[in-house]
Simulated scan of single mutants.
Amino acid sequence: MPTAIYISGLGQSANKESVEKYAVRYIKELEYSTSGIKYYTKVEKVYYNEDLSSLAVRIFQHPKEQLKSDKDTLVYTFYDFEYNELLNQKFQNKNLVAKNLALLLLVVRKFPRIIASLFKKTTYTKGGQTFYMFLIFLIMATAIIFLLPSIISLFKDYPIFKGETMCYLSKIGQFTIPITTFLVLFIPESSTLLTRVAAEFTTIDNYIQYGEQAQIIQGNLDALIEYIVENEENPNIHLHTYSFGSIIALDALFPIGTEPCNNILNNIKLLITVGAPYEFIDNYYPNFYTDRTDKMSEKIEWINVYSTMDAFASNFRKDNEVGNAEYGIVKNMEVPLNLNYEIARREKYNLFSFLTLKHITMHQSYWDDSKSGQSCTRLIFNKMKELNYFSITT
């Protein structure tokens, strides 16, 4: 029986998304593909390891003219894998100044490579947009630090702050408040950059650079897969991943210096990545994908959904054009099946679009908040049906 694990994005990418919404989108595609059949879901919360839980969303089908019954056919099951809180918890406990200082240090540390990527020819073709994004991060993070001298001016009556020291700090404060006000008013999406994007990029950096929480996250995913193997009948497991969730999945399938567990080797048959930031990470963290084990290369099929307008999505090509993937991760043995998904014509994007970070916000364009709107789900569903990963009784 086909069973899926849904691994969402991180931070902004996961905003207002859930496994239940994801399953409803598949129900809509099932209904468009069949006649005389009704589909519905049953949701169950399961505990797969002590206090670790997952929502199991089961999709059933039955004839339209009949009522729901225990004899209805199970079509597909989605389990969600939650890792956001675990990856974010240390960062979220910090105050605003500490968060922005972390973001500032990250950008400063990465800036030489960011500059170099503008001139060095690599498979990552969107360095200009990400350079602009990192420049905004630098400005916004610095803006909060600029406010500190104006806070010190509140203590001007204390002896320690009298004289030349206070005069110097007051002059700095006269400039920092207008600069910060200007940035907040005119930098695109500044109200969310400091809270969400700072958290997303610093936690991703900690995961990739230092392996922070990586072992426990991968251990939890192994535990969920074990639960599915033990509780589902002959499961063929599919990984449905979005944004940073695809990096979590790739780490599990192609680990560093070790083999995947037997449950992964024997039961995972399909990987689906949507907006996978593989090339972005490979460009700014060039050693992250080295020394990977290739045991899963011939065991899985890989469907990759991308938009050429998405600054983070990978098309696994040496250009930013629509077409078949040209390489994979480990020795190019697992080249994905590319599916292009666009919601706007490329020629409509201009300098204004670039300055307003349209290429960044396109990372959230694969589906909207509504369950009923069009999305990339149709492309995925049709490809899964073509490859016989969906068994539909008509």
Results as ranks from 00 to 15, higher is better:
125 T>N: 15
75 V>G: 04
123 T>I: 11
283 N>A: 07
238 H>L: 15
91 F>A: 04
207 Y>F: 15
311 A>M: 13
29 E>M: 07
37 I>N: 06
133 M>C: 08
32 Y>K: 15
31 E>Q: 10
144 I>R: 12
269 K>H: 13
192 T>G: 09
211 G>T: 05
250 L>V: 15
346 R>L: 09
390 F>K: 05
334 E>S: 11
158 Y>K: 11
361 T>R: 09
235 P>F: 03
57 V>R: 00
185 L>D: 15
61 Q>A: 08
321 E>R: 12
351 L>H: 05
143 A>N: 12
79 Y>K: 06
34 T>Y: 06
290 T>P: 07
376 C>Q: 05
81 F>P: 08
373 G>I: 00
93 N>G: 10
233 E>H: 09
29 E>F: 04
138 L>K: 01
385 K>R: 09
40 Y>L: 03
31 E>V: 05
368 D>R: 06
380 I>T: 01
224 L>F: 07
330 V>P: 06
301 E>P: 07
43 V>Q: 13
323 G>F: 01
52 L>Q: 11
293 T>K: 11
251 D>T: 05
266 N>S: 14
370 S>N: 06
220 N>G: 07
181 T>E: 13
301 E>G: 08
182 F>E: 08
53 S>T: 11
62 H>S: 08
75 V>Y: 06
110 K>A: 02
65 E>H: 14
73 T>V: 14
233 E>V: 13
20 E>V: 12
317 R>E: 02
294 D>N: 15
339 L>E: 03
48 Y>K: 01
171 K>Y: 09
94 K>P: 07
24 V>Y: 00
132 Y>D: 02
21 K>C: 01
55 L>M: 10
90 K>R: 11
260 P>T: 13
198 A>G: 04
211 G>V: 11
119 F>Q: 06
286 P>V: 06
225 I>W: 09
138 L>H: 03
41 T>Q: 09
55 L>F: 08
153 S>N: 13
374 Q>E: 12
135 L>S: 14
57 V>W: 01
136 I>L: 13
81 F>N: 04
101 L>C: 02
18 S>L: 01
267 N>R: 12
305 V>M: 03
107 V>L: 02
249 A>F: 14
261 C>V: 15
340 N>H: 11
71 K>E: 15
107 V>W: 04
186 F>G: 02
31 E>K: 11
180 T>E: 08
129 Q>K: 12
72 D>K: 06
109 R>F: 11
387 L>E: 06
62 H>V: 00
343 I>E: 07
134 F>P: 00
90 K>Y: 10
358 K>H: 13
300 I>N: 07
357 L>D: 03
295 K>E: 15
113 R>G: 10
46 V>Q: 00
94 K>I: 10
95 N>D: 14
104 L>D: 01
166 M>Q: 13
253 L>V: 11
323 G>C: 07
71 K>C: 07
268 I>N: 04
325 A>K: 10
339 L>H: 03
361 T>P: 05
14 A>H: 12
63 P>V: 05
136 I>K: 06
339 L>D: 04
330 V>N: 03
28 K>M: 03
66 Q>R: 15
357 L>Y: 06
390 F>W: 14
37 I>Y: 02
245 G>C: 07
180 T>L: 08
220 N>Q: 10
185 L>Y: 12
127 G>D: 14
298 E>G: 15
144 I>G: 01
60 F>Q: 00
133 M>I: 08
292 R>I: 11
144 I>A: 00
155 F>Y: 10
